Simulated assay, not measured.
Amino acid sequence: MAGSYEDRILRVVKYIHDHPAGDLSLDRLADVAAMSRFHWHRVFHAMMGETCAEMVRRVRLHQAALRLVQGTDPVAEVATQVGYPTPQSFGRAFRAAYGLTPLAFRKQGVPLVALRQMKPEEFKVFDVKIEERGALRLAGWEHQGSYMGIGAKFEELAALATARGLWEKTCGMAGIYCGDPTEMPEEQLRSFAALILRDGQDLPEGLEERGYAAGRVAVLVFKGPYSSMAEAYQYLYGRWLPESGEEAADAAPYEVYLNSPADTPAEELLTQLCVLLK
């Protein structure tokens, strides 16, 4: 069961509302959406204006607020009914959201808590092209943690390539980014800094290999500092992909760097944002 992006969004929203105490992990919601976990979180955030985790928390607390006012179940039971493991964790989350403890909220008798009002996102428009590309072989190192910290790995790769004379055996540099930084704790993010190997080149000693099969690739060329690329991803996943009729393959997006910050002003940097398509 797949369906349009609109169908997937509605299916996930209904699932969250129907199963507040169930498994609402990011991977489970990606399964409900019938979409690759590499892309689902980005699509949801871009289209809905909030992350999956933010919606889950908001819906759980909204349902709790209604149960507190309209029912008589003890606070501990309400906490369990909306997916909180302990009354303490529920109490902290509820007070952070509504400024009152659950008991004080119940005594106040607020009849209804308004749901968040969605507003259409304003997207900056980018040009996206679909290209047929051959297989891509990458040689590099994995980085775990904030994406902002991957620069050190690229610096080390560049130094290694210079010392070993590898530049003539490569076609530049690329990066793979496996998770949405708005959804996952920094310590769980995984990325891969890499050299792009030319055809027929052996894997350099000490480097790990990653790759992408030949196929159709959606390519957005972003001009500007790396720190500003979020708006390009927002457009790619929030506007272009849902409207294109295309389906992203089960592979992480990757970036190809067409020039280098070592000799290029930040505003002139060119980066290809690439999503493999089915």
Rank of each mutant, 00 (worst) to 15 (best):
D263P: 05
L276E: 09
P261C: 10
L236W: 13
L220H: 12
G245H: 05
L236M: 15
G245A: 11
T271A: 11
Q272D: 14
G200R: 10
E267S: 11
T264Q: 07
T271N: 09
S260I: 06
D199P: 15
F222D: 08
I196S: 03
T271M: 08
G200S: 06
A230L: 12
P204N: 03
E247V: 15
G200Q: 08
G224N: 09
V221F: 03
L276I: 07
A218M: 11
T264L: 04
P261R: 12
E247G: 04
L197E: 04
S244F: 10
G206T: 01
S191E: 05
A218W: 07
V275W: 08
L220M: 15
Y212T: 03
A252V: 05
V217A: 02
M229N: 12
A262S: 13
A266G: 07
Y257F: 14
A252T: 05
Y254A: 07
T264P: 03
Y254D: 02
E255G: 05
A248G: 10
E247Q: 11
P265M: 09
V219Y: 03
L258R: 15
Y235Q: 08
E267W: 00
A214Y: 02
G211E: 01
V219S: 02
E267A: 09
G211P: 00
A194Y: 01
A266Q: 13
Y235W: 15
Y257T: 10
K223G: 07
E268Y: 01
G245N: 13
S228K: 13
A214V: 00
T264K: 05
E255R: 11
E246H: 14
R190M: 07
S191T: 08
R190L: 14
G211V: 00
E255F: 10
A262P: 00
A230I: 10
Q272F: 01
L273I: 15
Y254G: 03
E247P: 00
E255Q: 15
E231R: 14
D202A: 14
L189G: 04
R239N: 14
A193R: 05
V275M: 09
L203I: 02
Q201K: 09
S227R: 15
F192W: 03
E205K: 13
L207Y: 02
R216S: 03
A251H: 08
L207T: 00
Q234V: 01
V221N: 13
E268D: 13
